[in-house]
Design a protein around this nucleic acid. Structure first.
Length: 273
DNA sequence: TTTACTGTTGCAGT
DNA sequence: AACTGCAACAGTAA
């Protein structure tokens, strides 16, 4: 599911359903997905109430009585909520039994998702250590530090946007969208960007992420039915997944190349190297 | 049937 | 230091 807009959509969907609910017990099907060890994890989380459900970048933060549970959906993580019985599914990996017969289930075909418990006092150091940059809003994300980081880097801009340090929450889809909107080739070296390009990147990051949140994220290559997958942003994507189709600005045919191992869509006329 | 690809990230190499 | 490639895993498309 998960770039920032999809994670935020999950958060908004889940919040009214789980806020104030007590976690009675936890079952972990794949121990390597959780930290600390699954027995400690289950014991710690059990009997705690979900006090707040927040998001930072692509992380979901369950604020419990005594600690934080950080959930990262990686490539395909989803949440499902069942009342009474839970159907069998080989991709259901964590089960949180809540009060009044609700079970929150974490589903993940590829088992890449992670769950970590940390102390409430360790939240800022956690995100600092992971090098998670500011939220892509005007309040948190400022042009000056963005420009400084770009000028002092030897990375290509696409992998740089993906590494979360400049700004939190961009993934492969929205990085391509931002680069197209700002007319920047994905392989441009960060330090070679013009001031105008940096300005456009800054503005487009804020605009596109906000638009995608408003559209409740993109539903792509997914089946429906899980919480947060009813987004419509896929109808507004300008470049991602449009290989061989005409650019919406100039009609040139959209190309797809690999940049640092990630499929990258761009318009050869609008986004000159 | 193989092979490449996939909304992510972290680690091992060079 | 900072890059690339790959691994974790499972499914789908060509």
């Amino acid at each position: 599911m998960p770039e920032l807009p999809e994670v935020e959509t999950v958060r908004r969907g889940l919040e009214p359903l789980v806020l104030g609910r007590r976690i009675e017990s936890v079952k972990v099907g794949v121990p390597r997905m959780v930290t600390p060890d699954s027995d400690v994890f289950c014991l710690t989380v059990s009997k705690q109430t979900i006090r707040c459900l927040r998001r930072r970048g692509k992380y979901l933060i369950f604020e419990l009585d005594d600690c934080l549970m950080l959930s990262h959906l990686r490539m395909e993580g989803k949440y499902r909520l069942f009342s009474n019985s839970v159907p069998d599914d080989k991709h259901f990996h964590l089960f949180f039994e809540l009060d009044n017969d609700l079970t929150l289930v974490y589903q993940d075909v590829r088992k890449f998702g992670t769950f970590e418990l940390i102390a409430k006092t360790d939240e800022s150091s956690f995100f600092l250590k992971k090098r998670i940059g500011p939220e892509p809003t005007r309040q948190d994300f400022h042009f000056q530090p963005f420009e400084r980081a770009l000028l002092s880097s030897r990375k290509k801009i696409k992998p740089h946007l993906l590494d979360q340090s400049l700004v939190a929450g961009l993934g492969n889809i929205y990085a391509d969208e931002v680069l197209w909107a700002a007319k920047v080739h994905p392989e441009t070296l960060s330090s070679h960007l013009t001031k105008n390009q940096m300005n456009r990147l800054y503005e487009e990051i804020i605009r596109i992420v906000a638009l995608a949140v408003e559209k409740r994220g993109s539903t792509i290559r997914t089946y429906r039915n899980a919480l947060g997958e009813d987004g419509t942003m896929q109808d507004f994507l300008m470049i991602y997944g449009r290989t061989g189709q005409p650019c919406r600005r100039c009609q040139a045919l959209i190309q797809k190349i690999k940049v640092a191992g990630r499929g990258s869509h761009f318009c050869p006329r609008c986004q000159k190297w």
